[in-house]
Design a protein around this nucleic acid. Structure first.
Lengths: 238, 238
DNA sequence: CGAATTTTTGATTTATCTCAACAACCGTGG
DNA sequence: CCACGGTTGTTGAGATAAATCAAAAATTCG
């Protein structure tokens, strides 16, 4: 994959944080307007372009990130190249929830991404100063854990059709994906496959079948309209 | 499954907490000896017998638990009865990491179990009083998240043989399982299958194959000896 | 426009599941 | 202690969902 260097951004200002579109959806919402200077001091904004891997499993976990725009895939690899995507992180998502010395997963931008980067030391200072943020982080971790358990159910026990239905229904519930039943998929079929524990071909065939059965419509390859949400939810059973 | 009522235990005392075998391995280790009275006041010890389900997915999340002895299975069900076990919780494991109003999973004792039960209110008071415990809980949540990601890789991308090898190697790393390469499996083949996203038959056949290939030895149905740990770790690739 | 990439569709294979039977184990009670 | 019924585990034969292999179609992008 083509990889160009990370664009290094500037130190944040309280002004920027105050008007940050991701704030409401992120752990930063735990910080009062008046304390934003502290937050801004702890972070630097950076840009990462599509295809760029900015967290590598096994490397020292020096930094933490908050997604302010774009989508990131989180994944693990086996030695022979098999890949499991453990999640897609969008706006407001906190990356690097980890207490270990090294990252337990990799992260790659699947579209142009903007991130706030915190060094470990600065994040810890911030947590010491703002206990509400630590609680918010615990909350986030608990939610991710519940999501992970849901995904284990999918990977361990659902059929290909159920997996794809679950994926579509879950995607349609993401706020920034548009209000109704029109979903934008920023990831490729291959990435959907690596997320759902399937192959590209099975994902594609399942989309085709859903299309033929009038459960969905594909306006473009990455824009899906749910025509029969009730049926899809039934299949997803969640 | 045969279900008898939970045996209700007594209020804890600081003495009991001080000598609790699970303390070192649990979130309770965040609490200094001198503060154990607070901990003891917040919890009640209960016994749960084999087969008893004491957390039910979807029911109000009123209580939290710490395992002090025995093994618990954590699982999710699909409407038609398909089950995915998301983890086995042993001594020291904290159950109920959740911020939602209702439990996102079920928990059942697979052998006689002893638990410390905290009500939500009492746990929150304890967290307010002892910030170190909140940090310890965050740490726990992060570790569980890493474990969950590892399990997603297994469920989404590993073969049956690799799954069983991973399971055995991971089990052998649990401290209370004995020091060497002799592993005790408190769960049935069916539970192993529901944990690994396989069927009972595939698990059984894989054990048989490992036995025939001299990678393991089965002393009893629930006691496995790893004869070729290096090879098993290679298969597990973790 | 044309090469490269991604997606779709088709034909075939295969790992795992399902169905079925049997064997081993467990606890209970005679 | 052993017989017995119930549960759990093993093994075999056959079915199948999804993977693999292969090629065509659609899309992207310089």
């Amino acid at each position: 994959m083509h990889v160009r260097p990370i664009v290094l951004g500037a130190q944040l200002t309280p002004e920027v944080c105050l008007h940050c579109g991701a704030r409401a959806q992120s752990v930063c919402s735990a910080i009062a307007d008046a304390d934003l200077a502290q937050l801004a001091r702890a972070a630097v904004e950076i840009e990462v372009e599509k295809g760029r891997c900015f967290i590598e499993e096994g490397s020292p976990a020096t930094d933490f990130y908050n997604v302010t725009s774009g989508t990131v895939k989180l994944f693990k690899l086996l030695p022979d190249g098999r890949q499991q995507i453990t999640g897609f992180a969008g706006v407001g998502h906190f990356l690097g929830l980890a207490v270990t010395r090294t990252y337990a997963f990799s992260a790659e931008a699947i579209e142009p991404v903007r991130l706030c980067r915190f060094t470990r030391a600065k994040l810890h200072h911030l947590l010491d100063d703002v206990p509400a943020m630590e609680r918010r982080l615990l909350e986030t971790a608990c939610n991710e854990l519940a999501t992970a358990q849901e995904q284990m159910l999918l990977l361990g026990r659902k059929t290909a059709l159920e997996r794809v239905a679950t994926f579509l229904v879950n995607r349609s519930r993401l706020t920034p994906c548009g209000p109704g039943d029109r979903i934008h998929l920023p990831m490729t079929r291959g990435e959907i496959a690596d997320y759902l524990g399937l192959t590209i071909e099975t994902v594609s065939r399942t989309f085709s079948r859903l299309k033929a059965d009038k459960r969905i419509r594909l306006d473009t390859v990455d824009t899906v309209v749910l025509l029969d949400r009730a049926w899809l939810e039934e299949q997803a059973s969640n």
